[in-house]
Design a protein around this nucleic acid. Structure first.
Lengths: 188, 188
DNA sequence: TATTAAATAGCACGATCGTGCTATCTATAA
DNA sequence: TTATAGATAGCACGATCGTGCTATTTAATA
């Protein structure tokens, strides 16, 4: 997972992994029996970590605006703490497989769709609870939150600059404030 | 460039390119004399296209808010028209090399820094012209514009869904309207 | 302790990688 | 027409790739 988060799943080769672990290629190969299985099991393992680091804290918060805040903060914290050395594992997968076809693309697209739905549902709950303006466009809100989080991840890694995480936090605050109908302190 | 925009620069191999072109490996190799040169020249060629498709239309607009609008629209149009089959070439490079080290990472980081400065400078001009609220945080504005554009690119490619471009357009309108101090029509 | 399962090693295979070298072919220039 | 430069081909090299197969070592079980 660490290797793939930095260099991509394509660089996660059986020989490379064996060298990294200090064992023989056969020793690695026997565990997976094909490269595609290795890739898929790596994704599965990363899903478990994402679940624990981001989704669980988010779902622990009450549905609605609080959940959106918790999800966003959990994501930014997970990037900030360097849970994976290459930033968010799934952002790496997104960049690598967005334009390709095959089972991995479909897995990545499915995961991303699930994340997007999670945001939409929480936003819908926020509307239902009266926390958000009822005219709120749920898809647009999910898009803008995703944009802030994803780009905070990419740019903080690219420039090794944690201030990009701060920009992400501020963008999230603005999005949620505007959906709440409150006048946010002035921001760009 | 087309191959790299879909599968990444790492997949742009001399043998693969030769097979794609229907000529021998030697026929390709003689033109570049090393793989690193091939990668660098591919980036140079993509820069020229980005210059023509995005930067030139943006710089043709008067400095300030109009330039930001023109840059954003040129970028979204360039993604929408599929100038590269894998979406924005440099977004692909960003995802591939953000966490790596070396000359290519540095080239990508430098390009992105230039893009970011371009947005900041145009925003500063908009403030100077009285188009934007003087309290506008220029870096935050550049961050949010970049986030909307970049994620519109990634998600439109990932889900083969042009409506993601529309979300990007709407996010850009919201960002610029708020910086202008105007009350935007309600949006998420 | 004896048996069995799991983990690892060793070796071989065909394919592809980047890189060199020497030909040959195809234009342009003299 | 001949000389010359550029593009392409062909071949070889060592390295690495994914994948098979048969040992052997290690750990758990009976």
């Amino acid at each position: 997972m660490r290797l793939a988060s930095v260099e991509g799943l394509g660089a996660l080769t059986i020989g490379r992994l064996a060298a990294e672990l200090g064992i023989s290629k056969s020793g690695v190969y026997a565990h997976f029996r094909s490269k595609e299985r290795l890739q898929m099991e790596t994704i599965h393992a990363a899903r478990a970590i994402f679940q624990q680091e981001v989704l669980a804290p988010g779902l622990a918060a009450p549905d609605g605006r609080a959940r959106l805040e918790a999800l966003a903060e959990a994501f930014l914290s997970y990037v900030e703490r360097g849970v994976f050395p290459g930033g968010c594992f799934f952002a790496q997968m997104l960049g690598e497989f967005d334009a390709q076809t095959g089972v991995i693309h479909d897995a990545v697209a499915g995961d991303h769709g699930g994340w997007f739905s999670l945001l939409e549902d929480a936003a819908a709950a926020a509307v239902a609870r009266g926390e958000f303006d009822p005219r709120t466009d749920l898809k647009q809100l999910a898009f803008e939150l995703t944009a802030a989080l994803e780009v905070a991840n990419y740019l903080s890694v690219l420039h090794r600059d944690p201030s990009m995480i701060a920009h992400g936090r501020r963008a999230v605050r603005g999005i949620l404030s505007r959906a709440s109908g409150s006048a946010p302190g002035h921001q760009a």
